[in-house]
Design a protein around this nucleic acid. Structure first.
Lengths: 298, 298
DNA sequence: ATTCAAAACGTCCGAATCGTCCATTAGTTT
DNA sequence: AAACTAATGGACGATTCGGACGTTTTGAAT
């Protein structure tokens, strides 16, 4: 009678609480931790219970974000995380924002899913609330900062797979666009699907992109445009850049909130995407994975 | 000896601080050192907390690097790290930038030292090279991104389990200033010296700071001004904000490259600092550290 | 249905930590 | 100088923890 709940394995709980696996097994057997057992004797701990007990101070807590449901026991649905992030954001709960995003990553969700299905909707919601005057600027800033910090934390975790011979992608946000998050997520998503990515960050002039073509010879350049300061100048510079890239056979991917249809139709590009899902899909066609470079997602 | 990194045992902390195990146990029981306990009663000390307290000078400091596995056998003088970071930055070696900054933190250097003595000089050097045309924009962007990422990585490590009531500081960069690093470092430095800090990030309008006064009732507000878009508007809004803060008895600390003497002399503030060393020193006078576990000496 | 690798199981046992007591040391007072 | 107090840390037996081992379960792919 497996009820629909979120379960964690002994190893996960051990890591979350900062103790050894054997200790978790003992605690369960002694009734300190509630758990159910499968027919074969494997312990299934309810992550909600563990989180509750840890918060009550009865247990140490190393990183509770590791306790979120995994793809193994319950299909980790991005919607759950999106929901949770929305609640955390509107409630101005900075710690929950962090643990939700980090938890989503630990649950094995791909970077582009975290970006498109979890963070983007939540930030859009925040934007709407802000425009409607139901959310003060200060909260919007806190939330943004929390998201950026969480994603940088993921970046630090991601730093592991350093294998050579990966194609290079360079990107950033154009001059006048000061948003950090979108371009950072793009870099990480590309990283996650087998590319070497170089993020130039926000407010990067086209001259930097141009010199990147020669200096690093990337296979792909991405533009993440959340905001465009001066459309005419942007178009001008962009077109000139695009011609140079095209002459070298370098793909140019563009995306971002600022590129609505009215703008987009006037641009040339190799690929456009409303989100990172399209970007990574495109990147995979450029550089089809030999084996399976994705993170574990069993 | 699991040494998860986030937790340390009494023996490890004892060795790191150069005291006996019994003393550590007593300090924990007396609340001098924050710790969590396992179900079986074993103490788990957060290495971040220990490091923070040790840096505050409230604890003896024998060899902090023993608490942190990655730190190894490097004479930990700030100058060494500054040198290394300078070389890494000018050489566009992103991975070295990261390892130098993270290494400095692991070596037990205080956040304000890392900011003032290591990162700031390196970034100033980068700025000079850039102005002299010896460094392309793209490198300047890469270097900045690498530093930001590294500091965010430190932020993730800094998460502390100590819930003791700490005074609140709120800060950020004013509207028009899009630099992330300075304000982030300020937040972390304050965090590191016993404050609860809330970083509103770059490009924060004064209205947000004003509403922060009422909503969160901080004891300190910091402004990190790396760049000022419109001096007249800035002055105007700032003065109005300062009056409100003063009326509430809230300290206002200002700093940053943009506040040269010509600007500064026209401003009112509770405290000005060229770097974070001054900010943390000031913060400590506002909130002097509690009683010391060391022997009394007059 | 069968196969297979990853993960979890149970058990054992050395090592680490616990709480307590008490001798030693450092700093202060008489 | 002697007495006193406070803090320290070593030494116990008892308890808890966690790594290692070979075995079993699990889930997914064949």
């Amino acid at each position: 009678m497996p009820l629909s709940g979120t379960f964690a394995s002994t190893a996960q709980v051990a890591e979350a609480l900062g103790v050894g696996v054997t200790t978790i097994k003992r605690w369960v057997d002694e009734g300190i931790l509630p758990a159910q057992k499968t027919a074969g004797g494997h312990r299934k701990l309810s992550s909600a219970d563990v989180r509750r007990l840890a918060r009550e101070g009865r247990l140490p807590q190393a990183d509770l974000s590791r306790l979120f449901p995994t793809a193994r026991s319950t299909p980790a649905t991005p919607d759950d995380f999106r929901e949770r992030l929305g609640v955390a954001a509107l409630g101005d709960d900075v710690e929950s924002i962090r643990s939700t995003i980090v938890g989503a990553y630990h649950a094995g969700l791909a970077m582009e899913v975290i970006a498109d299905k979890i963070i983007a909707p939540a930030m859009a919601q925040v934007g709407r609330e802000w425009e409607a005057g139901r959310l003060a600027v200060i909260h919007e800033h806190r939330i943004t900062q929390a998201c950026v910090a969480a994603v940088f934390e993921l970046k630090a975790m991601q730093r592991s797979h350093a294998q050579a011979s990966r194609p290079l992608a360079i990107g950033g946000a154009p001059e006048g666009d000061h948003s950090t998050l979108a371009s950072l997520l793009a870099a990480m998503a590309l990283n996650d699907c087998g590319w070497e990515s170089m993020n130039l960050g926000p407010h990067t002039p086209f001259s930097a992109f141009r010199s990147a073509l020669d200096q690093f010879n990337p296979k792909l350049v991405w533009f993440s445009a959340t905001h465009i300061a001066d459309e005419a100048t942007f178009m001008n510079e962009y077109e000139s850049f695009y011609r140079e890239a095209q002459a070298r056979g370098i793909a140019v991917a563009v995306g971002g909130r600022a590129l609505q249809e009215s703008v987009r139709t006037k641009m040339n590009y190799t690929m456009f995407g409303d989100g990172l899902t399209q970007l990574t899909a495109f990147a995979r066609t450029l550089n089809p994975p030999a084996q399976s470079p994705r993170r574990r997602s069993k």
